[in-house]
Amino acid sequence: MRTEISNTTDLLEFVLLGFSTTPNLQWILFGTFLLMYLTLLLCNGLIILITKIDPALQTPMYFFLSNFSFLEICYVTVTIPRMLMDICTQKGNISLVACAMKMFFFITLGGTECLLLAMMAYDRYVAICHPLHYTLIMNHKFSMKLATDFCVSTIPAVIGQTCRIFSLPFCGSNRIDHFFCDLPTVLKLACGDTFENEMAVYVVTAVFVTFPFLLILISYVRIISSILRMPLARGRAKAFSTCSSHLTVVVLFYGTASITYLQPKPRQAEDNGKLLSLSYSVLIPTLNPIIYWLRNKDIMLALRKLQSYKLGIKT
């Protein structure tokens, strides 16, 4: 009993090591992450703006895209500003309360994004497979209700998960070899048997990652089947163009997140886990609005209209 008590420390804070193992690259990393963050803010901000002011984009598809862009801004803001501050100060000290709060917001926003991506796939399914009933099914009231329900539904599960993790005793070192308080890395510092907590992580992941992914998969199987039956090549090309950007985002986001949260704990290498987390928490959210710009003709047209409007004002 004495040995167990002596090995268990009442930690008041963690230390995020971040990228301290590469001191020569600190300022290069700072500039890179700052540029990525500003790019994300600008691109997602433009998407939100044009979906609000362009009458051609006043549809459920772009309503969900606007909400997704807003979530992306919030999602990345949980991690990057703190990471930039730690790189500047060379200190990664963070209290348990602040760590728990960041974990809560990160998982809540990530889970909401997964559900919203599933809803966007369902929207495309209704638009392509049932076009005559699209306006009846995907009306504004229904879209608003879904967006609100998705955001609210993740909160109780994430609160429970976060409380379970931070109610555990933590042993030995308080150093987290990561750049933010990600769930798997914090769980590794816990004492004793964490099997129940790991199973709870898998259950939450199944609900908010695996289940929405299956819904997306089913939707796209039916979408592709319906597209292939279209008689006109032009119609098939247009249908594919509206779905390709969303499908690309889904594959990138779900792929890296699933590997991180569904991989067995002993097999998770620190460096690989950090790189994967960097992918789905920073890199992919930065690429998402660019993907929508490049692969969505309506977005490109709306941007040209906005640019022409600004030029008209200046002249």
Rank of each mutant, 00 (worst) to 15 (best):
A157Y: 08
K145P: 01
M144V: 01
A147L: 01
T22R: 08
G18R: 05
V249L: 11
I218E: 13
L38H: 12
M119T: 00
I216S: 06
I128T: 14
I47P: 00
P156C: 02
L17V: 08
L96C: 04
N7K: 15
P169A: 05
F240M: 14
L11P: 05
N7Q: 15
P55S: 10
F33S: 07
A233Q: 03
P289T: 07
T154C: 10
M61I: 14
C88Q: 14
K274L: 14
V126M: 05
A127P: 00
A206C: 11
K314E: 04
V251S: 07
I159H: 06
S245I: 01
T51Q: 03
P266C: 04
Y125Q: 06
T256A: 11
P60W: 05
A127I: 04
T3Y: 12
G45N: 06
L12P: 03
S279Y: 09
P55D: 08
C129M: 02
T3C: 11
I94P: 05
I53R: 08
E198T: 01
T51H: 02
A118T: 04
N44Q: 03
M120D: 06
E13W: 15
T77W: 10
Y280R: 00
Q26E: 02
F240A: 12
I107N: 09
L35E: 09
V186P: 07
N44E: 02
F211V: 11
C99I: 04
F179H: 14
I290A: 08
N139G: 02
I128W: 10
F30Q: 04
I80K: 15
H178Y: 12
M199E: 12
T51F: 05
Y122C: 00
G92P: 01
C74S: 13
K314N: 04
L183D: 09
M300L: 11
I73S: 03
R234A: 15
T22A: 06
Q263N: 11
E113N: 08
G111S: 10
H246I: 09
S225A: 01
I50A: 07
Y202K: 12
K297Q: 14
T286K: 02
F106W: 08
K238N: 08
T256G: 00
I176L: 13
C88K: 14
D182K: 07
K238L: 13
L306Q: 15
T194S: 05
I94V: 15
M85P: 04
I94T: 11
L287K: 00
L71Q: 07
L306K: 15
F208S: 02
C74W: 07
Y292R: 09
G45I: 08
E13N: 15
V282G: 11
D54G: 07
R295P: 00
Q58E: 07
I47Q: 07
L306W: 13
M103P: 01
L232W: 02
F33M: 11
I259S: 06
D149V: 10
I107H: 10
I73A: 04
F253H: 06
S241V: 13
D54A: 09
F104P: 05
P169G: 05
R2M: 03
L16C: 03
